[in-house]
Design a protein around this nucleic acid. Structure first.
Lengths: 253, 253
DNA sequence: TCCCTTATCGTCAAAATGACGCTAAGGCTG
DNA sequence: CAGCCTTAGCGTCATTTTGACGATAAGGGA
């Protein structure tokens, strides 16, 4: 029958009828990470409707009929946090489409990873009933659970963030537009969960071409000697990378 | 019928009805790369039906109603090449869902990247009318074009492959189960488009823990002194990584 | 003023890298 | 079979990079 014909591939389907396909919904889900109170936090919302009513989930929503995937992600981000891509870094993470990941119907979700500086207000959300920042450790361990397969998505997002700090200047996305080297180092330490030597980190960060642009201004927020303020540089890749010591990340198989 | 209902009610969001959404088709597309005849090649199929009839496209097809995304990708790979995940490495690449990327309807595709050893037969495809390996350079330059947005997907796949050679043992996925260091080096040289010093490469490849496992056997395929044969090791990450010299990859913005 | 804190520069030994010489071990050719 | 060519694989060495950590700079507070 038709189904069989269709699955042979796009190219081999002379006159297929796409509408005869079972309905699939496409959503975007967001892993929005920030560094707050010495821990890596993720933005979660409490679900107001079944399934998983009352449980924490990643923010997300349907992709509109004529909307690009990235636009949908940015729109959801703006709805939940009031932030725009000017302020936060956002990139596609991965897609998840297990047939039973949503009990209501087939839902394929395209997950996005967003890295935001510490926001004064947790959320400026519109429809989000209850949204807040919670430490990712709450969900990565045996503690709380996230609705749907969002725990898996969160793990992927955190893993991606940790890896990208090594080779990309993305750590700065967790900082305000102007930041000190120590603030940047604190980001690395919290995201990686390690301690870094301040002097060696300072050397490597300032040496990597295009990573940091000094502003000339200084700040004395942190009690000691005033620190130089930097802005993100033009580099899209760190050379040389800031490698973690010995890391076997996900126990991949 | 269903279609009419689907296109109607989009507005309601909080207590949404997933079925009240417009139809979206979900496909998987494959970027299957291999190293052949001193160049990096991609598996492409010639389209037999409009749109883009007669043009080259990436292999792919619909995700079946109760099929996981990764399974769909593996199935398509098997249909086109006869290969299974035992033989090739396959991983999710990214998703593409621009509203007009397929003129017929909204199609969201989940692209997968597969890295295969050089296959004796170009394809063992079932339905693929005309499938073959072509150098990626044909499509990356101003030469041939791929159907749909497949050129963009191919670029992402090649970029991903190039990047992953640095810090993952994935280069071995381009080789037969047993391979020599020179064969591995040739993979790096062809994928990166650079030349590598054989002696330094030998040192770094054999030094990286878990990258290579010597088999004890040797081969003399290449005319000179017989070479040790190795198998892929257990490492999932290369430490230290095999870094390219100075590389600004995609001219990112 | 002394002390405490953080920032930043400097030093130095250990490790990694890159350039490259040299020997090993096959086949090929005359 | 004696060179010769080819690739494999080991070793050397100067240069860089890294990591550990000392020392100084520059603020606030007791």
């Amino acid at each position: 029958m038709l189904l069989v014909k269709l699955t042979l591939g796009f190219a081999a389907v002379p006159d297929y009828d796409p509408h005869s396909y079972p309905p699939v919904a496409v959503t975007v889900d967001l892993v929005v990470l920030t560094v707050r109170d010495d821990s890596l936090c993720v933005l979660v919302v409490r679900r107001g409707v079944p399934p998983y009513r009352g449980e924490w989930a990643l923010p997300g929503g349907f992709v509109r009929p004529d909307e690009e995937l990235g636009r949908a992600a940015e729109r959801e981000l703006a709805e939940e946090t009031g932030l725009t891509p000017d302020t936060v870094h956002i990139e596609q993470l991965a897609s998840y489409g297990d047939p039973d990941r949503d009990p209501r119907m087939r839902v394929v979700t395209v997950a996005y990873l967003a890295l935001a500086p510490d926001l004064p207000t947790p959320t400026g959300g519109s429809d989000a009933a209850d949204a807040r920042w919670l430490p990712v450790s709450e969900f990565l361990g045996a503690g709380r659970r996230l609705a749907f397969d969002h725990g898996r998505i969160l793990r992927a997002g955190v893993e991606r963030a940790r890896a990208k700090l090594e080779y990309s200047p993305l750590a700065a996305a967790f900082c305000a537009p102007e930041f000190t080297i120590s603030e940047l180092r604190r980001v690395y330490e919290i995201v990686w969960g390690t301690e870094l030597d301040p002097r060696n980190f300072h050397r490597k960060a300032t040496t990597a071409p295009g990573f940091l642009v000094p502003t000339g201004r200084t700040t004395m927020q942190h009690g000691g000697r005033p620190a130089q303020l930097y802005r993100r540089g033009p580099a899209s890749l760190l050379h040389p990378p800031l490698l973690r010591a010995g890391h076997e990340p996900t126990p991949a198989g």
